[in-house]
Design a protein around this nucleic acid. Sequence first.
DNA 1: TATTGTTATACTCTATAACTATA
DNA 2: TATAGTTATAGAGTATAACAATA
Lengths: 154, 154
Amino acid sequence: MAPGTEGPASAAYFPTLAAERLDIALCRASAAVARATEARAHALGLGVGQHLVLKMLAAVGPRSQRVLSDELRIDRSVMVGLCDSLEQAGLVRRERAAGDRRAYAVTLTDAGRQRLAHAEEAVPALLDDAFQALTPAERDRLSALLGKLLRPAP
Amino acid sequence: MAPGTEGPASAAYFPTLAAERLDIALCRASAAVARATEARAHALGLGVGQHLVLKMLAAVGPRSQRVLSDELRIDRSVMVGLCDSLEQAGLVRRERAAGDRRAYAVTLTDAGRQRLAHAEEAVPALLDDAFQALTPAERDRLSALLGKLLRPAP
DNA sequence: TATTGTTATACTCTATAACTATA
DNA sequence: TATAGTTATAGAGTATAACAATA
């Protein structure tokens, strides 16, 4: 075999790389998980962003698009389209906020609550699929580590 | 304050969300780390992909673009531009592979080796910055978990 | 003047499919 | 026919800036 093209010698390289560069490992793992969940998530009929909005509204009650954007770390201009699609599907209503006529109070409808419940049922299976390489205990540890990474420095 | 727009009550929502959806936490953590490393990585004058190619060539010797693509999980069509830029900067040479005139043997130059060494020096600081929320022991644990997630099922 | 929602623009990634020259 | 490298195109996602209505 010609020099520069032999295979087996390089086949073991990637794991080494991933171990050395935590930032790259994180990026690749995220992409791999996203690919794994994509199909299942799409089957729910709810995009991730849409799901997040419904979930937050269910947890904290009606909020403005601005608050949803800030809290979910989704850009205001993206939130517009998200709320558009949810409203069109009848899952939220855009009520006018009582004290500020610039803002909406994005409100979960009964249909939205039902759809969310249905989606939430499917989440554990979705996660099981994507994280089958990890035991439940390992998933908890990963969750704790990521949580620490995401939380702004106290 | 008007209903639907009060702030503090919802400010604690995101951490809860991240804890429940491991896939989303992973995605957000990856994005946060990428943002944190972006500035420093750019200062190195080497993109992540360029860095990966140099690093792999240094580790395993001259390889074809195909092998680099497969091993680094970078699409062939992207690898073209990566090698273009590296060649233009004088960091690699595209030598013809001895036994297969379709393929190159992408080869690290001395300048490439130097540039890589310089970049590698900066990596620890780059990672320290992005992962300052985690102790060294926690980083090791995260690395191990991500490695398990990335390794194809044995 | 600052803010909420909206729209438009641009730019980066990625995926895909062709095409060439070799095998 | 299959593979290595290349090119072109289209789509998703994101960042940015502008704008109208309101504060």
